[in-house]
Amino acid sequence: MAVNPAVEGRTYSIPEPHVVTQDELDAFAAAVRSPGASSGATSQAAPLTFAVTIAQRAEAEFMVDPEANVDFSRLVHGEEGFTYHAPIVAGDELVATTTVRRVRSAGGHDMVTLETGVETTAGEPRVTTTSVVVIRGEQA
């Protein structure tokens, strides 16, 4: 079963705002070996890929939409991109909204382009992420 192309243009938001903590920034920085992780400094900007932890929650709302028809067990991550507007810091109250930009099929696989805006509850943009996920075809 293929991804339903009718979901192009739909949007999905995280259920409630997420308040960024210094502890989660520290844990993420350590996990990706960020240069800020060992400095012990507080109120540092989040590592460059931290926004994905928020964005993926909005993307997950798309993945579980029964009308989208995404077979999660066949899903692989094809591409990821970040465009930075302002640094994420501890205390930021963040929301994220995913827009389904494109659904297409090629070589028996479905490719879905998801664009997610991560911003504060005050509407200040932080990061825009773009993910391409590939849902492998049954024959692949």
């Binding site: 993420f28 996990a31 990706v32 070996r33 960020s34 240069p35 590592p47 460059l48 890929t49 994905v52 991550h77 990821e80």
Partner: peptide, 10 residues
């Protein structure tokens, strides 16, 4: 994949 990308980000 995002761990590998995260190492590059660092």
């Amino acid at each position: 994949g995002m761990l590998t990308m995260g190492l590059v980000a660092s």
